[in-house]
Design a protein around this nucleic acid. Sequence first.
DNA 1: TTGTAAGCGTTATCAC
DNA 2: GTGATAACGCTTACAA
Lengths: 342, 342
Amino acid sequence: MSLGTVSRVFNGAEVGEDYRRRVEEASARLGYHLNTYARALKIQRSMCIALVLPSLRHPFFARLADELTAALARENYRSLLMITNYDEQSEQRCFALARQNIVEGVFALTYSPDFEQLGSIPVVSFDRQHSDRIPCVASDNFAGGRMAAERLIALGCRRLLFLRIGPVICGEVERRGLGFESACKDAGVPHELFQVNDTETEAPIYRFLDKHVHEGRFEFDGIFCNTDGLALRVMKYLAEKNIRIPDDVQLIGYDGILDFATGDYVCSTIVQPVPQMAAKAVDLLLHIDQAGECRGVYRFPVQYAAGGTTREPRTSSRFSAEAQIFDPFRKLDRTVPLPENR
Amino acid sequence: MSLGTVSRVFNGAEVGEDYRRRVEEASARLGYHLNTYARALKIQRSMCIALVLPSLRHPFFARLADELTAALARENYRSLLMITNYDEQSEQRCFALARQNIVEGVFALTYSPDFEQLGSIPVVSFDRQHSDRIPCVASDNFAGGRMAAERLIALGCRRLLFLRIGPVICGEVERRGLGFESACKDAGVPHELFQVNDTETEAPIYRFLDKHVHEGRFEFDGIFCNTDGLALRVMKYLAEKNIRIPDDVQLIGYDGILDFATGDYVCSTIVQPVPQMAAKAVDLLLHIDQAGECRGVYRFPVQYAAGGTTREPRTSSRFSAEAQIFDPFRKLDRTVPLPENR
DNA sequence: TTGTAAGCGTTATCAC
DNA sequence: GTGATAACGCTTACAA
């Protein structure tokens, strides 16, 4: 019996029944496992995708990594996890590593990447359109911005504020403010945008807020923040000034971050459909990208969810409904966020 | 000039200066990258470690993955990320995959693993001592339990409660309750333990709480929960009963979860030193395990941090102090949790 | 110091 | 349907 036959058994090719049995029996007995590396070397496919992310400390990135890994696993791909810590050089090193590891593709959520490094390895980026040759997956930031403004207006706000902090590079993410502005203009509602670009500190935000607090009252009655994180910090700040949310000021963030303990949205928010975005990204990287044209941005519809920082009942995330359930071994519907289990 | 020479250049072996230059120049020009797979095949080392975790949705797991990946990267190792979704079969599949990928080691946070699958691949587990042949990294749960009880007592609590939910398997984690009990006994303080094992729902916890609420007062004035997550849910429950925390009841959790937005501890808590634990785990897997005896459990000292659910000023996490700083490209001290940046 | 050649475990292409 | 064999890209004795 030859190696060829063994290989055929493991690859599900046509093999005589007796041969098949003998191979299976022998490999079970010897604890034999196919060697992925030799295989990859031979067929020039690693079945491996690199995830290049800034960090897993932020729930959005962690969620993205979780969903991407799940989607890849469904397609029989492995995830090589690389953390850049928002560091430019680290991004380069990750790309070089990815290349050496002959990954078949890269998911990149990076800030100043040099895609040259990657040679001809396909890339899908999130939230930033780095080049017209690299497809970008994002939520519909413009629609989300509009949605937030419209919601605040519908909830009775008369003077709106948009707050943003982040690096300038964030192509797609910029659109949150544009959408907000456009909806305010359409509705003829007074509004202001305050954006801090690419800076070391959020202090300007707080100085701005300070300037607009007079005798315990805030000049704006509706705020849209470009992330849930910022919304939470603004909320904390206003609380310290004894300004009540949502009674005095209503607040909407962006992302749809869930509280890990309760499964509630941490604030009223524009929810990004992370599972769908991950699935599309995988599809793009594995199937579509190869074939033909797939450049450009894929924008996913967002949803508004009330999370306690607006004057309306909370939207229950599906997770909330299941938060009580606590069975580590229950078969999981991946579309449902997981309850804590430790 | 031969392949051997090229190889030697890339491996930093002694090579004539002119040769080295020529090789470097040519590989830069051609965009050549070493092929990790061929290399791994030849030298029988993949420089790859598998991370088998239940999920990245829980901040503790995400943090662990983040720190492990960072620690591995420092040693020039890659992380293969595998998510089990708390699913038994999935755990098996991950192990089989790990084996095929000839990883040089596995980090396992699993519930009912069959380590046979892994053959002779070294494993380090977290929080559960599965076998005396597999080293286990954990925090000092017993000391943590004691610490929580002692703290509550020092803060004036007269009747203590320990609440726990989780699968029975959690070897090390059980010790939280034991430590709590021992400290209560030492201090002669009345206390009760209520533990829900391996169940589908937290409902018994809430029924227990219900039974002990009388006329808007809770029978216990200090609660230690086996995770921060549970503490937060209990807090929410009590808040709904108009029982105030920390005024009426003081609450301590376990883990040291940080709020992603503000960097504050989400509740008063026993903090696990995740970075140190990750570093040790990597050390164990890569260096020590190979050499000699390393079986048994490695228990890391924990620290108490006040997070607003006890009657005392908050402990500032180092992150809090830096939460205002917002520079994506700043060189990072890995021991400091990261501020949000999106 | 450099070149040569064998071999890592797999798959693919042939003959048989 | 099966067996032999070359080749994938690299490292490493060993020879020069």
